[in-house]
């Protein structure tokens, strides 16, 4: 009983890794608290539904992040970049407006009823894991989370562009003076972050059902993860995502009546211990 919960916590944690890394990247470079991130995730899931029903799941898993990345470029070019010198509250309101537009768009195009995306044939069976029978797709979700975390870490740690991203996250002007076009770099990072929201959507589609309210749970958890991990920090967000997955899963067994408040308790406890989050203020 407990071990299956720990496993499910790991699955949800992996999904939060994909979601919150995009949120952390966008905050890290643009200092934008993107309330629309959950709606971008939802849009990714619905786009995935349409693409997968015409082709298959794997095509959707490649096509959706690409489409969402293009949307991210447009989002940066026409919203975040022109607003970068405004009051942060203005930008938050704009992302909140975008959330409303996207929710309405999804309801108009796909309707209000729940939809589902079947897991790909390769992963549709259940497999035996330490004596538990678990859907193979859920193991794949953990794998997807690991791949995303690994790829982002390698990119940021070992590539020159990753170095520029880390530099620009703390010292945008100094980085720019070295010859980095920080505006263009930020646009690219917003595109990557938006693509990750879309990827999280298509990953979630086969195991969480699609509905116009699917964004609200995961966006709140993602904000808890990003704040707990340290605003803008990726490694902090990875750790916090896995921890929150466990807190949710184990909490549901032992403290079912408190399950909904546990993420906030976790956030408060971590912030009292380290006010800047696990990793402080670094990408």
């Amino acid at each position: 009983m407990l071990s299956i919960n720990i496993f499910n916590g790991l699955v949800y944690g992996a999904l939060l890794v994909v979601m919150s890394s995009g949120l952390a990247l966008i905050y890290g470079l643009r200092r934008v608290v993107n309330f629309a991130h959950g709606s971008l995730y939802m849009l990714g899931a619905y786009l995935g539904y349409t693409v997968a029903s015409h082709t298959n799941f794997w095509v959707a898993q490649v096509a959706v992040p690409l489409l969402m990345g293009l949307l991210g470029l447009a989002l940066d070019r026409f919203a975040f970049r022109p607003l970068q010198d405004r009051d942060p509250l203005t930008v938050i309101l704009v992302t909140f407006g975008l959330l409303l537009v996207l929710e309405d768009l999804v309801q108009t195009v796909w309707g209000k009823s729940n939809l589902s995306v079947p897991a790909p044939d390769l992963l549709s069976a259940s497999v035996d894991l330490f004596g538990m029978s678990v859907p193979a797709y859920r193991i794949a979700v953990i794998f997807f989370g690991l791949v995303v975390a690994g790829a982002l870490t390698l990119w940021l740690r070992y590539s020159k562009m990753g170095l520029f991203v880390r530099a620009a996250s703390t010292e945008p002007t100094i980085t720019s003076m070295q010859g980095v076009n920080v505006d263009r770099l930020s646009g690219l990072v917003v595109a990557v972050g938006t693509a990750l929201a879309g990827l999280a959507g298509i990953i979630a589609a086969p195991f969480l059902s699609l509905s116009p309210s699917m964004s609200s749970d995961v966006i709140i958890d993602s904000f808890v993860v990003v704040v707990t991990g340290g605003l803008g920090s990726l490694s902090g967000a990875f750790a916090a995502a896995l921890l929150l997955g466990q807190v949710q899963a184990v909490g549901a067994v032992y403290l079912p009546e408190f399950a909904t408040v546990l993420p906030y308790v976790l956030m408060m406890a971590v912030l009292l211990w380290r006010p800047a989050g696990f990793a402080g203020n670094r990408v």
Partner: peptide, 13 residues
């Protein structure tokens, strides 16, 4: 840049 090492600061150049 505080979150880069000495060598990474040079590479930024």
């Amino acid at each position: 840049v505080a979150n880069l090492s000495v060598e990474e600061n040079l590479i930024l150049g």
